[in-house]
Simulated assay, not measured.
Amino acid sequence: MEAFFVSVFAIAIGEIGDKTQLLALLLAARFKRPLPIIAGILFATIANHLLAALLGHWVATHIPADILRWALGLSFLVIAAWTLKPDEMDDTKIDYGKYGVFAITVVTFFLAEVGDKTQIATMALAAKYNDIVMVVAGSTLGMMIADVPAVFLGKIAAPNFPFKYVLWGAAAVFAALGCAVLFGLGDGLI
């Protein structure tokens, strides 16, 4: 259960201000159909984070423990720094064509999440824990916790939300995870 709870917390915090959260806002404003958008986010996140977790697990089983510890610790520190720079969506016009809202959401979310900090964090969490199912379940729930309100609230709440403070908090969480891994602190906690 530890892998699940750490994954939920890390991903939910890391997703605040992320480009996929901004994509949720964009899709909600464009289509005004929250249920297929939410279903698309869920499907894309499961697929994307499952691939990330499998890669993270493979790395953990094929890389020596000392090298893995340094790589994981440093990757969490990089994610902490990356978190301080919120993502922005560019103003390019997306051609939605004849595809349904669900399909558009799945494709755009999956592609937007490739190489994203939450995908990399999921890979690092899967490398840390030996429980792919709990990491994917936790990271998916974390994404949903952050993105579903964005779908329902849209741009109404965005100007009043204290993104700056949340981003600093998220960076602190990832930095703490990185330091704990590097210094071997709380081996049973993270």
Rank of each mutant, 00 (worst) to 15 (best):
M1F: 13
M1Q: 10
A3G: 01
A3Q: 09
V8D: 05
I11T: 09
A12P: 00
G14P: 02
I16L: 08
I16A: 09
K19I: 03
T20E: 05
L22K: 07
A24C: 06
L26I: 05
L27R: 08
A28W: 04
F31V: 06
K32N: 11
R33G: 00
R33S: 02
P34N: 09
L35R: 14
P36R: 08
P36Q: 00
I38E: 04
T45V: 15
I46Y: 08
N48E: 15
N48S: 15
H49K: 14
L50S: 14
L51C: 14
A52Y: 15
L54G: 11
L55H: 03
H57T: 12
T61Q: 10
H62M: 11
I63Y: 12
P64N: 13
A65S: 14
I67E: 06
I67H: 06
R69C: 02
W70D: 08
W70Q: 04
A71F: 13
L72R: 15
G73E: 02
G73F: 00
G73P: 02
L74K: 00
S75Q: 00
S75T: 15
S75I: 08
L77I: 15
I79F: 06
T83K: 04
L84W: 09
L84F: 02
K85I: 12
P86D: 03
D91M: 06
T92M: 08
I94W: 06
D95H: 14
D95L: 14
Y96T: 14
Y96K: 08
K98A: 13
K98R: 11
Y99W: 11
G100D: 05
G100E: 05
F102K: 09
T105L: 01
V106E: 03
T108N: 04
F109Q: 10
A112W: 05
K117C: 02
I120S: 08
T122I: 07
T122Q: 07
M123A: 14
M123D: 04
A124P: 01
A124M: 11
A126I: 03
Y129T: 01
Y129W: 12
N130K: 10
D131K: 02
D131Y: 02
I132K: 01
V133G: 02
M134N: 07
V135C: 03
V135Y: 00
G138Y: 04
G138M: 07
S139G: 01
L141I: 11
G142Y: 05
M144D: 05
M144L: 12
D147G: 10
V148A: 10
L153R: 10
L153A: 10
G154P: 08
I156L: 10
I156W: 09
A157I: 15
A158P: 00
N160M: 13
F161A: 08
P162L: 15
F163D: 03
K164T: 14
Y165H: 13
V166D: 04
V173A: 12
A175W: 01
A175M: 09
A175D: 02
A176T: 14
C179A: 09
G186C: 04
G186S: 05
D187R: 15
L189N: 05
